[in-house]
Computed example of a mutant assay.
Amino acid sequence: MSIDAFLEGFTERDWQEIDADGSERVRFAMVGMGWWTTEEAIPAVVGSDFCETTVAVSGSVSDPSEVEATDVERAIDYEEFVAGEAADAYDAVYVCTPNAMHLDHVRVAAELGKDVLCEKPMEVSTERARGLTAVCEEEDVALMIAYRVQTDPAARRARELLRDGVIGEPVSVHGGMSDEMLSFVDDPDHWRLDPELSGGTTMLDIGIYPLNTTRFLLDAEPVSAYGRTRSDQPEFEGVDEHASFEFEFEDGVLLTGSVSHSACEESHLRVVGTDGQLLLDRIFFPGRPRELVVEREGTRSHVTFDQRNQMREEFDYFAHCLLTETEPDPSGEHGVGDVRAIEAVYEAAERGERIEL
């Protein structure tokens, strides 16, 4: 089969079953009004098809007019959130607070009967991640972990091509991500530099992207892990600045790569197979022009797709699941898998040997 035949017939929103006519919408409470929520999440929801932001939960925002979204009705603090204030004004919550606070905020939402979209990493330890999943199961609310790459048309197209055998059998994967954290985190007391709040690891923050995306693309799980970490600058005392990793998957595929909080902004994931290779370039940063490149039989093809807003796709997908009473994916158990695998990387770095999962 020619590569052109492989590239035909892709539906970008392969999950959508109902019309986006605005007649049905999920109302969100945004829990945590840091820069990611205000600059990425809320603007994405403003232009979404199936949801809207109606409540802001924050320790600093006290008036709806402070939020740049016309549909925000109420601004409440965390104590009011716990007390159930404005609970009738939202259907679901988006939890985007420091990692170690996710469990507590998800528990409040679940006990209020609200479905949950929780940012990654879902928590700072496997134990707390499992507790987060358990509380949602106990309260019978939907839980989705916010792996926005999984709803990006480029990643979904790549997974479809791999399933169709466009590059043969996958043999190895290389992934990486880097940024200059200190350029946007200028406060030494910022939670990302606090190991108790962040989990203390570059892998939990950005290494989770190549790991989780590989799990998604291959539909496979890692069986062992190895890694190394280091920190050079004094600002990273207690948290690592750079990390390298290797995961062996259940089918023998190796994922290798590195992440850094002190390097130029870059991200990629390359899958090498028996008959070709597939590259997702700049895939982990929202708002960046992403590329999907396929090489096969001496032909290099740039696959076309709509450059959709990753956050908007994520919110619309989750809302669509709620409206159609469909179980959202990735699940809490899926998120637990990443936290456990990343813990193994740090155990391996400390012990100097590969850790079986």
Results as ranks from 00 to 15, higher is better:
2 S>K: 14
7 L>Y: 07
11 T>L: 05
18 I>C: 06
19 D>V: 14
23 S>T: 14
25 R>H: 10
25 R>V: 15
27 R>W: 02
27 R>I: 03
28 F>Q: 09
29 A>Q: 08
31 V>R: 00
33 M>L: 15
33 M>C: 15
33 M>R: 06
41 A>L: 10
43 P>A: 07
44 A>I: 03
45 V>A: 13
46 V>M: 10
49 D>K: 02
50 F>R: 11
57 V>Q: 00
61 V>A: 06
61 V>Y: 12
63 D>N: 15
66 E>R: 01
67 V>C: 08
72 V>K: 08
73 E>N: 12
74 R>M: 06
77 D>T: 10
82 V>A: 13
83 A>P: 04
86 A>V: 07
89 A>Q: 09
94 Y>S: 07
100 A>V: 03
102 H>K: 13
108 V>N: 06
110 A>S: 13
111 E>S: 11
111 E>Y: 05
112 L>P: 01
112 L>E: 05
116 V>Q: 06
118 C>A: 13
123 E>Y: 07
126 T>C: 07
128 R>Y: 10
137 E>C: 00
140 D>K: 06
140 D>P: 03
142 A>C: 05
143 L>V: 01
145 I>Q: 13
146 A>I: 11
147 Y>W: 11
154 A>K: 01
154 A>T: 02
156 R>I: 10
168 G>N: 00
168 G>L: 00
178 S>L: 05
181 M>R: 03
182 L>S: 04
190 H>A: 15
190 H>E: 10
195 P>E: 00
196 E>F: 03
198 S>H: 13
198 S>D: 13
201 T>V: 07
206 I>K: 07
207 G>T: 07
208 I>M: 12
211 L>K: 11
221 E>S: 13
226 Y>A: 14
229 T>F: 02
234 P>R: 10
239 V>K: 00
242 H>R: 14
244 S>Q: 10
250 E>M: 11
251 D>Y: 12
253 V>G: 08
261 H>W: 15
265 E>W: 12
266 E>N: 12
266 E>I: 03
274 T>G: 10
274 T>R: 05
280 L>V: 05
282 R>N: 15
283 I>P: 08
286 P>H: 11
290 R>Y: 02
291 E>F: 09
293 V>N: 01
294 V>G: 09
294 V>H: 04
303 V>F: 00
311 M>N: 09
312 R>G: 07
313 E>K: 10
314 E>R: 04
317 Y>E: 00
318 F>V: 03
318 F>Q: 00
329 D>A: 14
330 P>M: 11
333 E>A: 15
333 E>G: 15
339 V>Q: 00
346 Y>V: 03
355 I>H: 02
